[in-house]
């Protein structure tokens, strides 16, 4: 029995997934290195050792993400849109809209009833609305990026920003810190600004239930709850795996389908 693998080389993190049939048996997440080929190798090695598997046991591997063309060991590459759609559907079969927030981009993907990509929009031109926005803000606030989401729940009167630009918002945050505004109110304002920006993309694809969020920002409770308020309904929580892995899972599911000879869609 050969295993199916997927490798997603992103701008900030690289992920690899190994599947045995429809089950995830190996997971690797590493910080991306200067060269995409090194990031891919590190992620894959982490997933292999996590699953106790050797490279020779991998039957097929699909690569995706920003650095996909440089991955040495893949059999095929697929677009991030295709992999995120595939991964989200594996994580939540009823999904109609995928909102993926990466380290340097953000995308909204609308799926039809069969799980095919119907429409999508991406933003990779402006840092606002991407993971980078939160990263810059967490740095200015001097809080761990994983803690930023928790500040919203404790905020009393969240700040607002005059513009969406990360650079101007950064200057505003410094002003707020210096004028003694509580860190919770600043953090909540940051999460709200992020959610508003993402909501613009979601409305551009006419988001419909069920909506799932993938990418690291899906773990930020402040962003998620504001986005839910704007959308007017709950965002489906993903429990089957870490939402950051959606792209790599999608890639692995493509590999699985290849190994199965496309006989049936893996769900």
């Amino acid at each position: 029995m050969k295993f199916a693998a997927g490798c997603d080389v992103g701008s900030l993190t690289s992920k690899a997934i190994i599947m045995d049939g429809n089950r995830i048996v190996g997971t690797g997440i590493v910080k991306s290195k200067a060269k995409p080929e090194l990031s891919a190798e590190a992620a894959m090695n982490a997933a292999l050792s996590n699953g106790g598997i050797t490279m020779e046991q991998i039957g097929y591997c699909v690569g995706t993400g920003y650095g996909r063309e440089k991955i040495p060991f893949v059999d095929e590459t697929k677009s991030e849109i295709a992999c995120h759609a595939k991964g989200a559907r594996w994580l939540a079969p009823s999904v109609k809209t995928v909102i993926d927030i990466g380290g340097q981009d953000c995308k909204a993907i609308k799926l039809d009833n069969n799980g095919n990509v119907e429409n999508f929009v991406t933003n990779d031109k402006c840092a606002s609305g991407t993971g980078r926005f939160l990263e810059v803000m967490a740095d200015v606030l001097d809080v761990d990026i994983n803690e930023l989401g928790n500040l919203s729940a404790r905020a009393r009167s969240p700040i607002t920003f005059a513009s969406t630009c990360t650079v101007w918002a950064q200057a505003d945050v410094i002003k707020y810190i210096n004028s003694g505004v509580p860190i919770e109110d600043i953090g909540a304002g940051i999460n709200n600004a992020m959610a508003k920006r993402v909501a613009i993309l979601a409305s551009a694809v006419r988001a419909e239930k069920e909506v799932v969020m993938t990418g690291g920002v899906a773990k930020n409770r402040g962003v998620v709850s504001t986005l839910e308020k704007i959308l007017g309904y709950r965002i489906r929580k993903i429990r089957r795996a870490d939402p950051q892995l959606a792209g790599a899972i999608g890639a692995a599911v493509f590999s699985l389908e290849k190994l199965n000879g496309y006989q049936k869609e893996a769900v």
């Binding site: 200067a34 340097q104 840092a127 630009c165």
Partner: peptide
């Protein structure tokens, strides 16, 4: 290739490297 200040800054750092 980037016009965004944040992204162009990263691009400049990699060009320096």
């Amino acid at each position: 290739s980037n016009q965004c200040v944040i992204f162009a800054e990263t691009e400049v750092v990699s060009l320096i490297n």
